[in-house]
Design a protein around this nucleic acid. Structure first.
Lengths: 225, 225
DNA sequence: CCGCGTCCTAACAGCATCCTGACGCCGGTG
DNA sequence: CACCGGCGTCAGGATGCTGTTAGGACGCGG
């Protein structure tokens, strides 16, 4: 049963697609926004992503790029824009196919079959990020430091994931707290400091003088590869 | 320099495509008929085939099918027919993408890039896996431990199979429950714990201190060979 | 009907993880 | 110099998760 993640902001299209795909015995998960799509992709590890470009919160190519930082799952883009530059952008960002609305359901299904047939079984790939002497394998959820495995707790993983997926960028504390702890923890700065310290102790060569998990006083934190 | 085979029966289109692709530094070979295309494919082992469906001698799906008998090279189909059934036929015959004429050159190039990016031979997985002193034969559904056969119940097999098929990777409990028990059991964590314990008792040398069927608290389980 | 194997639910002790609060450090400021 | 906000660190109790055991429900062949 192939796991498919369908992303679209229009509920009726989402429902129609889900019903059609489930009738073909796909295992369907849905998402209505870009951030939700990224979260579901982590949890569910789909074998195919069907992605509408007109999302309310994130740009389509942004979603593709973020997925591509850690997974090579095939991505089929749906879009109302038939403009050529949109297609080129999406495909070069890492998408594997591009279908313009309105589309025929049987054509969409055929293209999905083609993608899964070609790329579905090939699921394994390191997809690893370097952090000093440590290598972070996002897909396997494993960290190796000098060859030995380092154990991270769920919250530590969650925080590290958010940082690593935006290399070099400064992430504000409110943003980090919201992504890792969810709403209601916007003022739990002590929490953030605590887990950042644990990550440094487990990953940095000299936790007292961090070189990759950096703090900008008053602003937030930054992952520097 | 990527080797591309371009197949089209109209000489001017063939020439235009070849010039454009060579300008992007592709290594281009051309063919005007289906039989010629098959011959050139054998000689030059292209990394991508751009195939027009309206050939004089052979049907398009026939060319695709014959190529697929011996090679898994990506095939991009060009066609004047925008009919949905044609697309489905070509894609199901083994094509990887389908572009209708008239097409934009930059879109075609982007789709070619997307296909070539996915290059890479698919490696086949071994039929038997080692787990400590036990050998697991996936195909025969048998487990031998110190030479004697170990009996596993269907559910135990199912769970072990999912774990073993992703060696070294951490699989979330939701994912495992979904794969083994199907939808509706996403919260039956006790079940998962129970069967994991039974697998450990039957396979691990010291079930109290597992070394191959590992748990990461709060996240899921991992098979380590 | 009974025995048998398998699957599922419930419960509990032990433990890892999480959160909270407190403390010391540091640089900037009046 | 005293004060303050931001940061890193430490310890303790609450919470949640894990492994394990026991027992009932179900299907199946004798």
């Amino acid at each position: 049963m192939t796991r498919v993640l369908v992303v679209d902001d229009e509920p009726q299209i989402l429902r129609a697609l889900a019903i059609n795909l489930r009738a073909r015995s796909y295992d369907v998960r849905t998402a209505g926004t870009g951030t939700e799509a990224l979260a579901v992709a982590v949890d569910h590890a789909p074998e195919l992503v069907v992605l509408d470009l007109g999302l309310p919160d994130l740009d389509g190519t942004e979603v593709i790029a973020r997925l591509r930082t850690w997974t090579s799952v095939p991505i089929l883009v749906l879009s109302g824009r038939s403009d050529s530059t949109d297609k080129v952008e999406a495909l070069d960002a890492g998408a594997d196919d591009y279908v313009t609305k309105p589309f025929g359901m049987d054509e969409l299904l055929a293209r999905m079959r083609a993608l899964v047939r070609r790329l579905g079984p090939a699921e394994d790939e390191p997809a690893t990020v370097l952090l000093g002497e440590s290598t972070i394998d996002l897909a396997a959820r494993k960290v190796l430091r000098d060859g030995v495995e380092v154990r991270l707790t769920p919250t530590e993983w969650h925080l590290l994931e958010v940082l690593v997926r935006h290399p070099g960028r400064l992430l504000g504390q409110k943003r980090l707290l919201d992504e890792v702890w969810g709403p209601g923890y916007e003022n739990a700065h002590g929490n953030l400091r605590l887990y950042m310290g644990q990550l440094r102790r487990k990953l940095e060569p000299d936790p007292g003088r961090p070189r990759h998990l950096l703090n900008e006083p008053g602003m937030g934190y930054r992952f520097e590869p």
